[in-house]
Design a protein around this nucleic acid. Structure first.
Length: 287
DNA sequence: GCGGAATGTAGAT
DNA sequence: TCTACCTTCCGCT
């Protein structure tokens, strides 16, 4: 279930479980065995997350700065699962297992799992756009994108682009961390037609979208799931049944194709866009 | 047991 | 625009 909020939560969870202590590192599946052997017994010195990229910093015992980083990208299918002792034998699909202090973590099916240097890590940051979850807490999440700030950096690209706003939101060079759920939901929440070109968006509309992403994704990290319906539209508030979907969170349009819009009753539509299924309400999203 | 879909991206054309 | 890649899970036979 990897959008940016998942990755930031995983970073926090790794730090809480393994931070500052020596960790056993292995690769039962084998594809990461050489690097795992190098890292085995080293200390987890720190973690980082940018968009959908997770970084685990390791160094020899007694070192507080990372001497190497494990770069993880879950892709579409990857999963990270935590558990506590008794530690079970790992399944043979586990690419990376960390173990220490009575905890273990199993990584399966990632697009990327590689040991990299600090400059290589920096190169990943350099090719990613601003991440709503890297905005420092306390920097007026509900305010407009500060001049020269992160939301403004994204706006500089969006406002010049003839590409649809739905595609721009998925472009990690423009905004890092937004995936197919947040893209569909944030456009619904702001009544924006997903096919509108970036350059036809108003600055005011973008500022509101950015501020909303900061709030929504922070809540996503906190609850470890994507909830996007406003308080007045929850199942309890509307007297409707909750969503019966394995992804858990309450949403307006994501994977609700051909169902009636919660707000206006129009059938939710779906169409492929930028290699993914887009969902939107043609009644509510005309701006 | 099989086929398809799933919250993603890189690289070729 | 396409294809390849990583794994799980669900619905269908």
């Amino acid at each position: 279930m990897p959008e940016g909020h998942t990755i930031h939560r995983l970073a926090e969870d790794h730090l809480a479980r393994f931070g500052g202590r020596p960790v056993r590192v292995s690769s039962p599946q084998g594809k990461f065995s050489d690097s795992a052997a190098l890292l085995d017994g080293q200390t987890l010195t720190g973690v980082d997350a940018h968009g959908k990229h997770l970084f685990l910093g390791f160094g020899p015992a007694g070192v507080t700065e990372a001497t190497g980083w494990v770069h993880v990208h879950l892709g579409l299918f990857g999963k990270l699962g935590f558990g506590t002792a008794p530690v079970p034998p790992p399944a043979d699909t586990v690419r990376l297992r960390l173990e220490g202090g009575g905890h273990y973590a199993d990584l399966r099916g990632p697009t990327t799992c590689a040991l990299i240097t600090a400059p290589e890590k920096q190169a990943v940051h350099d090719r990613l756009g601003p991440d709503p979850l890297r905005v420092p807490v306390g920097s007026a999440p509900s305010g407009p994108a500060a001049p020269g700030g992160d939301g403004a950096r994204a706006w500089a690209r969006i406002s010049r682009s003839r590409t649809t706003v739905a595609a721009l939101l998925m472009d990690q060079k423009v905004v890092a961390g937004v995936g197919n759920v947040y893209r569909a939901e944030v456009l619904f929440r702001h009544g924006i037609d997903p096919y509108r070109a970036g350059k036809d968006l108003t600055r005011r509309a973008w500022d509101a979208i950015w501020a909303d992403l900061v709030d929504l994704m922070r809540e996503g990290v906190r609850h470890n799931r994507i909830d996007t319906v406003r308080p007045e539209h929850t199942p309890e508030a509307m007297g409707r049944p909750p969503r019966v979907d394995d992804h858990g969170g309450e949403v307006y349009v994501y994977r609700r194709a051909r169902m009636p819009c919660l707000l206006c009753g129009t059938e939710i539509r779906t169409a492929p866009l930028a290699a993914r299924n887009l969902f939107w309400c043609p009644g509510c999203q005309q701006a």
